[in-house]
């Protein structure tokens, strides 16, 4: 077990090296000079520009710049961006709100997806199942920015039930509407997965045996259908947490949430390579740790799986 966890953690090292290298290369290839942008309309003095470039190692070649970045990661000192703000502070400000948003979206999609999916699976091909089929199709078909703007207009502006935008002083209640928008596509996936899984398990041999034992229908569903059906759903949800955080860029943009998505978007526009790659590194870590967590959870749910 510990050997397995250790092995998985060791595997993250090449993943992080590879991911940062690729992102670094992409930002490097982006046209435009970020330092020149700092001067605005004023003429750039070559001496000052050279000094700044030296300060950020921009006069070195691309590969050496990447090595400097790696050094920053391993010494826990990511340094400043081109405007002189500490990158670690920016990450500290941005991550809590995105993590909260992602978790709220996760709770929303998990509760509604599993409950509605179970009902649909138990009454397969009934009117409820058909309604859910159409509803999930709609959720999957409409792009997230359309849903976002429509919800913002309808629930925020017209009905006034929720804050239209979130802004700098975010609170949990302000994040409800963005969380719903963020979770809605995955809700459709979760619902369908639960529905199929429940319907499949209902006809399993061991469920018939449980009925033959004399268990009431409620007990059969609770003990022998639900738990078995939720294993694939758990995997899907767990792997998705990373996706929710990364996918928050659009939602954060629409509702003006001061989170990681906004930070990444701004940094890419400004060519703040160190900031972009730092954000990505944290994202990769979240992804890797979440999938490890899911694998470990899998072993808890299914006694047949043991890691050695």
């Amino acid at each position: 077990m510990w050997w397995y966890i250790g092995k998985r953690l060791l595997q993250t090292i090449p993943v992080i090296l590879g991911a940062t290298f690729i992102i670094w290369a992409l930002v490097f290839l982006r046209p435009g000079d970020p330092i020149l942008g700092l001067f605005g309309d004023k003429p750039a003095s070559p001496a000052v520009k050279a000094a700044i470039e030296h300060q950020y190692h921009l006069d070195e070649n691309f590969f050496v710049q990447w090595l400097y970045f790696l050094k920053g990661i391993f010494t826990f000192d990511l340094g400043d961006d081109f405007r002189g703000q500490a990158i670690s502070t920016q990450l500290q400000n941005a991550f809590p709100v995105t993590v909260t948003l992602a978790l709220m979206a996760l709770v929303f999609e998990a509760i509604f997806g599993v409950v509605l999916g179970t009902i649909a699976g138990l009454r397969r091909n009934g009117w409820f199942d058909s309604t859910m089929l159409v509803a999930t199709l709609i959720m999957l078909a409409i792009p997230i920015f359309v849903i976002g703007f429509v919800f913002q207009l309808f629930f925020g502006v017209k009905l006034g039930w929720a804050a239209v935008t979130v802004g700098g002083d975010w609170t949990v209640s302000k994040l409800i509407l963005p969380a719903v928008v963020l979770g809605i596509v995955d809700l459709a996936y979760t619902l369908r997965l639960t529905r199929t899984s429940v319907a499949e398990n209902l006809s399993a041999d061991h469920v018939r045996t449980a009925r033959a034992k004399g268990l009431s229908p409620g007990l059969v569903v609770r003990n022998h259908v639900l738990r078995n059906s939720l294993i694939p759903v758990t995997t899907h949800l767990g792997v998705n947490v990373g996706g929710l955080m990364a996918g928050a860029v659009i939602t954060e943009g629409i509702f003006n949430v001061p989170g990681v998505g906004n930070l990444a978007f701004r940094s890419i526009q400004q060519g703040q390579s160190t900031t972009v790659v730092s954000v990505v590194t944290v994202m990769v870590l979240v992804y890797v740790l979440m999938s490890l967590l899911v694998d470990l959870l899998y072993a808890v749910l299914d006694p047949r799986i043991r890691y050695a």
Binding site: D205, H206, A212, K213, N228, D302, P303, R304
Partner: peptide, 21 residues
């Protein structure tokens, strides 16, 4: 009321008839 208490069942395939969890 009959199932289990009056009529018991021993099913066919021992591999699939026990809940693995």
């Amino acid at each position: 009321a009959l199932r289990g208490s009056s009529i018991g069942l021993v099913p066919q395939d021992p591999m699939s008839n026990l809940n693995p969890l």
